[in-house]
Design a protein around this nucleic acid. Structure first.
Lengths: 342, 342
DNA sequence: TATTTTTACGCAACCGATTGCAATTGTTGT
DNA sequence: ACAACAATTGCAATCGGTTGCGTAAAAATA
């Protein structure tokens, strides 16, 4: 096994009797270098198997062309699609993506933010951990002019870029859809109010839709879950089905929860959608697999990832220090499938 | 907005009237530095908000504590779980993970391998792209003593670490399970023989199991798919159900395919598992959602990720240049659920 | 008290690419 | 043929930690 040292521009320079500065410029098609030299350098670089050391370039230029992604986990369909979008866009502009999982832990998020900073990422895309209550650990980016984009689970009162959907409207639409399908006693699952309180927003939409249609809001139909997991969904569903006059609809703010409700209903002999209609959220793959197919709200994960990455890249190009950090809203729509059919 | 320059060890050195070498060593608890100084330095570093520049350290020390992950996509459940495992293990040893998606394209894989090398990753974990036929683009790692671990879809005839399951045995077990459940005409979906030919192995297991149980191998029951997708699964399923004596079982080497078969069967009025039993592969989330629940073969994604990361980290610690690159086999087992019930 | 051994810290080169400015060579104009 | 200018290329500093080696100060030994 050869212990090949990495080939550097010094090696090329020596071979061609040129200065490293010339090599460096030639490789980048700098206009002050003659075409002959450029060709010669590139050819030699290729021959010698030269691969630029991005560390050196990054250190010198103080820019790494790296986007740090800090999210709760990569295994949720929404988040893995988000990553996919980020990565595709980053790739096109020759950016590298570093991914870290907070596992919804505040402490890990803080450490990882520091780690990203330590890696001198050029930009950061983050979806907040559930636990996170304050965002001081992101100041290191803002203070150093490193573009920061929050996606989906975004903090309030922090002037940064945000890429989100309108959770209020989405919640409203989902609920309205149930009403239109004939539901009159509509339940709702919601989750602990975290910093990026998207569940609160969805709930708000739910409540407004009911109000607008003159349906009474019943507190017992709104169940608060500890976590958005299948297990907690089953618990909540059972609690729901224990109610005396059975609700006839459910707006679950996540497909996993909706699926748990559908399956629990089945087990208890409640027919979906005849007796009980369900609409989920996210359009996860499972929504099309489960029987009956799940009506749901689209959540354009990949688009959001692309949008976030584009914001970072654009912002990095035009180094004008925009103080206005716009919020990007992406559309959602109701996907009416079997689980809410009349 | 403050244009805070990053705090460096030079800043700390100046403030404390010490040399940068002392600062550097103090921050790492070097034994030649007095406890007093160490404490003082750490306190000051903290106060000044010092965050080490990993680029500088990486450049100088030629080690970045970064693991590059090169996989087809992050959105497949198996692969996102793999990442999760890698990331968890890396995190524990203070390694950073860089992720790149080849999208099953050979060309992208080549570029990204170069990009990882360019980023001077300390180690590489890769699952090959479908298109990939040769592995020359990985020599840059092997030649430079950068540990390289292939996972799941691994090349043959390349002396590197490999973390895999025994696809032959898994295929054998799956088929045997169907036989035990009473199937006598068992179909099989397989996919184009790529470099890391795990589908071939599973097929081999399928064939051997049939032979061992004196069941004739019928070529028409073995359907070759272009891609392992839901759409192609539906096509293959329809082809299968067009056969005159209907097969009574299917070993699908992926849960998506199995699900497509189950749903196609349902649509055509074929009862699962009464008339047609199906076993999948991977234990994807959908396997537990679909009705009937899908029997499947476990594929320990997270464990495989952890194992791969551990190999890299271990190998990096003991810099002894092991020429023996062991293969790690992880266990798989049959999860008997509804879709193969007698 | 003089000398050897520890202990604690400083000096300066180094990793590899980038870049402002200087220097050299080549062209054009007169 | 010579000045003026453009086209190329070289020099050397720089980014920020790291580390081998040297040295001063403190402690131990003679």
């Amino acid at each position: 096994m050869e212990e090949n040292k990495h080939v550097t521009i010094y090696d090329i320079a020596e071979r061609l009797n040129l200065a490293t500065s010339t090599i460096s410029r030639a490789l980048k098609d700098h206009h002050t270098i003659s075409d002959k030299t450029i060709k010669k350098v590139k050819k030699t670089a290729e021959e010698m198997g030269f691969v630029p050391n991005t560390l050196a370039a990054g250190l010198r230029g103080n820019k790494t062309r790296t986007i740090g992604v800090l999210i709760p986990t990569v295994t949720q369909p929404f988040l893995s699609s988000l990553i996919s979008g980020i990565e595709i866009t980053a790739q096109k502009s020759d950016y590298t993506v570093i991914i870290m999982q907070s596992h919804d832990s505040y402490e890990e998020e803080v450490n990882m933010a520091k780690s990203l900073y330590s890696n001198r990422v050029s930009g950061v895309i983050c979806s907040l951990a559930m636990e996170t209550r304050d965002t001081a650990h992101f100041h290191q980016f803002s203070n150093n002019n490193i573009p920061l984009v929050f996606v989906d689970r975004v903090p309030k009162g922090y002037n940064t870029f945000r890429v989100v959907i309108d959770n209020y409207t989405a919640g409203y639409k989902a609920t309205k859809h149930l009403i239109e399908q004939g539901c009159i006693r509509i339940a709702h699952f919601t989750a602990g109010s975290e910093l990026g309180n998207l569940y609160n927003e969805r709930k708000r939409g739910y409540i407004e839709a009911l109000k607008d249609h003159n349906i009474e809001i019943e507190e017992e139909l709104i169940i608060n879950l500890n976590s958005v997991t299948y297990e907690d969904g089953v618990k909540a569903s059972n609690a729901l089905f224990d109610l005396k006059p059975l609700p006839d609809g459910l707006f679950a703010p996540g497909d996993i929860l909706a699926v748990s409700a559908v399956q629990t209903a089945k087990k208890r002999g409640i027919k979906v959608p005849e007796e009980f209609k369900v609409i989920g959220f996210n359009n996860d793959p499972i929504s099309q697999i489960i029987d009956p197919n799940l009506s749901t709200i689209t959540h354009p994960a990949e688009k959001m990832g692309k949008a976030a990455a584009e914001i970072i890249i654009k912002n990095l190009k035009s180094s004008k220090n925009d103080d206005a950090k716009e919020i990007t809203f992406l559309n959602t729509e109701v996907l009416a499938r079997e689980s809410t059919q009349k």
